[in-house]
Structures are given as structure tokens and as C-alpha cells.
């Protein structure tokens, strides 16, 4: 392997994109299905999470653009129609617009917006929610279509990412539910609604974390057992190699099992406050580990070749830069 072409910004972007998508998707599900007909009550309670989601997507997009080789011309992404990454960008844009429209309906200081957007909020939330689902899936699909990378090119990856995104979405909503500056809209009913949502999400997240542990272990262990040589090598790095500590203690332990135990121990400060934070950290760690596991099947001798090349700080690379010396 030459080097990692995609680094931290992409990992953060995948995490934030998934997180934002997860929040929007769950918000929509809660509002449209689980607590159908109570949009008026729940709407303001979901404004906080939705705003967080908007921030996540915006920040994610910033990192995505930052990672580009030529950020000033990021708009070129919209010039062709077929590529997966273009679909992702489109969904992100739509989601952000409709999320913004939704949030604007609850901005307390500008009644103009409120009056204008309030009638469409269900529609806006619907579009944002569907786009959110799309984004969650897309973050996994984007990697899994790159079949040069054995660890990415598996259908399990989009499922894992979607599960993880939803799970982190749950956690983020739990943390931000009902937090919204404009108390105008927040009635007692809204708070009660928030508590109801919280209870539902508590259960949902237990399920999701369970599922995520399952998918993650199945994926990694099946790579280890029956993957290609490259996938095996990557999986080995997770299970017993350089990433083992991050994987077992960080991701499985603190990111999934410990919060799961906290969730299962019933509603408490731990399960309300600490567990969601751990889930969020676990989600970020998952994206990091996945992005760093960009192993490509090496050509014969490729590693030997690139290992011999100089590091970018090699002295000769920076010598004689003062122009003509003698």
C-alpha cells in the first residue's frame, strides 16, 4: 500500500453524515409513525435534534470539501449524474435544505419564517427523514462499491453503517431532545412527548446496539475466517493486531457493550447521559477504523517498493531550494 488516500476528514464526514441522517430519519419515524398525529406536540421537541443534525451535515460537508484536492471547485460534484458520490452529495444538499426549512419553522425570533414554513413542516421533516435514511445507507455504500478494498467491498458494510448511524442518531436525540431556545413552542405536552420518545428510543437503541455488535462481529470474524488474503490480513489487524485494542476495548467495549449494559440497567443518569456519549464515540471510532482499513490487494512486490521510497521529510527532497548556489 502506498498510503491512506482518505484520512480523518473522511472518517469524520462519514460519522457526521450518518449521525445527521440517523437523527433526521428517527425524527421523521417518531413524528410520522410512532407518534402519528402528534406532530404539533412533538415538533418543537424535535427541533433541537434536527438542528444538531443540520450542524452535523454542515460540518460533515465542510470536512468532505476540506478533504478534496481542489476544494474551491467542489461544485464540480454536481456536473455528472451517475456516480454514487454524486447521489450522496445531492441527498446531503436536499436533506440540509429541508432540515433547514423544518428548523426555521421553530426559530423563535423570526415569525416570518415560522409562518411561512410551519404549514410544510411535516413535508419538510418527511423529505429530510427519507434523505437521512438515504445518507446513512450511502455512507456505507460509497465504501462498499470500491471493490478494490476487500474490507469495504461487502454488503455488510452499508448495513453496519446504517445500524451504527441509526444508533448514534438515537443517542444524539436522547441527548438533545427538547433542548431548544425558543420556549414559545415547548409546552408541557412537548416535554411529555419528549419523555415518551426517549423511552422508545431507549428500547430502540438497545436493539440497535445488539444488532450492531452482531453485524460487526460477523463481518470481522467472517473476514478473518474466510476472506481474501487481504481481508484476512485486515481482519487480523482488528482482532489481534495493531487495531485490536481500539477494536475490542474501544469499539466493542466502551462503544457498544458498556453502553448496552447501562441501557439494560434501566433509566438512570448513566444510561441517559454517559451511554449515549459512549455510543457516539463508538460510532466515530468505527468510521476511523473502517477508513483506515483501506487494504488493497497488493501487486507482487508493491509493498517492498513503496517501503523503500523516502518519507516526505527526507533531507534531499528539500535541499538546493535556494536557487543557484555556485
Amino acid at each position: 500500500m502506498k498510503r491512506h488516500y482518505w484520512t480523518s476528514p473522511i472518517a469524520i464526514y462519514l460519522f457526521l453524515g450518518g449521525l445527521g441522517g440517523g437523527i433526521m430519519f428517527l425524527a421523521w419515524i417518531m413524528s410520522a409513525f410512532v407518534f402519528a398525529g402528534q406532530a404539533d406536540v412533538l415538533g418543537p421537541a424535535l427541533a433541537g435534534p434536527m438542528f444538531i443534525a443540520l450542524l452535523c451535515l454542515a460540518l460533515g460537508c465542510f470536512f468532505l470539501v476540506f478533504e478534496l484536492g481542489q476544494p474551491p471547485v467542489f461544485w464540480r460534484v454536481f456536473t455528472t449524474a451517475t456516480a454514487i458520490i454524486k447521489w450522496g452529495a445531492t441527498m446531503l444538499s436536499i436533506a440540509m435544505f429541508f432540515n433547514l426549512f423544518y428548523v426555521l419553522a421553530y426559530v423563535p425570533w423570526f415569525p416570518v419564517f415560522e409562518n411561512f414554513f410551519m404549514p410544510f413542516r411535516a413535508f419538510n421533516l418527511g423529505v429530510a427523514g427519507i434523505m437521512g435514511l438515504g445518507i446513512m445507507i450511502y455512507t456505507g455504500v460509497m465504501l462498499s462499491t470500491l471493490k478494490a478494498h476487500s474490507f469495504w467491498a461487502t454488503p455488510a458494510l452499508p448495513i453496519l453503517f446504517t445500524t451504527s448511524a441509526t444508533s448514534t442518531g438515537c443517542a444524539a436525540i436522547s441527548l438533545s431532545l427538547g433542548v431548544w431556545p425558543g420556549s414559545v413552542h415547548m409546552t408541557m405536552a412537548s416535554y411529555l412527548g419528549a419523555v415518551a420518545i426517549h423511552e422508545v428510543l431507549h428500547v430502540v437503541d438497545i436493539v440497535l446496539v445488539f444488532v450492531e455488535i452482531g453485524i460487526l462481529l460477523i463481518m470481522v470474524l467472517s473476514f478473518l475466517g474466510s476472506g481474501t488474503r487481504t481481508a484476512k490480513r485486515a481482519a487480523k489487524r482488528w482482532v489481534s493486531g495493531a487495531y485490536a485494542g481500539w477494536f475490542w476495548i474501544g469499539m466493542i467495549g466502551f462503544g457498544l457493550v458498556i453502553p448496552l449494559c447501562m441501557y439494560l440497567s434501566g433509566v438512570s443518569a448513566m444510561s441517559n447521559g454517559v451511554a449515549p456519549v459512549l455510543v457516539l464515540c463508538g460510532g466515530l471510532l468505527l468510521r476511523y477504523l473502517c477508513v483506515w482499513t483501506d487494504d488493497r490487494q497488493p501487486l507482487p512486490g508493491e509493498e517492498r517498493y513503496y517501503n523503500k521510497l523516502p518519507k516526505s521529510d527526507a533531507q534531499f527532497l528539500h535541499a538546493w531550494e535556494d536557487g543557484d548556489l555556485y
Binding site: 502506498k2 484536492g69 476544494p71 470500491l146 478494490a148
Partner: peptide, 30 residues
């Protein structure tokens, strides 16, 4: 036309594409 997203770099199974890190930061096309 390139914006340097490097998706093609990651897509190539042979590792035959790259962006340079020794050119100005905002001029890193594939």
C-alpha cells in the same frame, strides 16, 4: 474537471492513480 475527491484513486484495484502532496494544497488533482 477534477475536484480531487480521490474516489477513483480508491476505486482502482491496481493503485495506479494518486494525487500529489508536493504541489500547492488546493491544486491536488488526480
Amino acid at each position: 474537471k477534477c475536484m480531487g475527491c480521490k474516489v477513483c484513486v480508491n476505486a482502482c484495484p491496481y493503485g495506479m492513480r494518486d494525487v500529489s502532496h508536493m504541489v500547492p494544497r488546493f491544486d491536488q488533482y488526480v
